[in-house]
């Protein structure tokens, strides 16, 4: 019981690095073995990884065309005096 708690905690501590592929090979193997037998950690890992992928796949807050136009116009005026 105590052993599992430590393993889940250490997995969670390194979850971001694991998702980013930024853990050493031997640690990766250990985590993969843990995921295979721990459904709780697998769910956390899977959902978190998919969350990151969704965010990375969307262009949030696209620049409105009128904002870009105003930006160039404002800079044009301000930079004349800069």
């Amino acid at each position: 019981m105590a052993k599992k708690k430590i393993t889940c905690q250490s997995f969670l501590d390194d979850l971001s690095d694991y998702i980013d592929g930024d853990v050493a090979q031997e640690i990766r193997v250990t985590f993969e073995a843990h995921l295979a037998k721990c459904p709780n950690c697998w769910v956390v890992f899977d959902e978190t990884q998919r969350t990151v992928e969704i965010f990375q796949g969307y262009d949030c807050h696209p620049l409105p065309e009128n904002v870009k136009g105003r930006l160039l116009q404002t800079l044009s005026v301000k930079l004349k005096n800069a």
Binding site: C60, P62, L63, V67, L71
Partner: peptide, 21 residues
């Protein structure tokens, strides 16, 4: 100045997104 406008064109969207976030 046209070169600076080009830098603005290239990076405005990313800076806006960052600022808005």
């Amino acid at each position: 100045r046209a070169s600076f406008d080009e830098l603005v064109n290239r990076h405005a969207a990313k800076v806006f997104r960052l600022a808005r976030h």
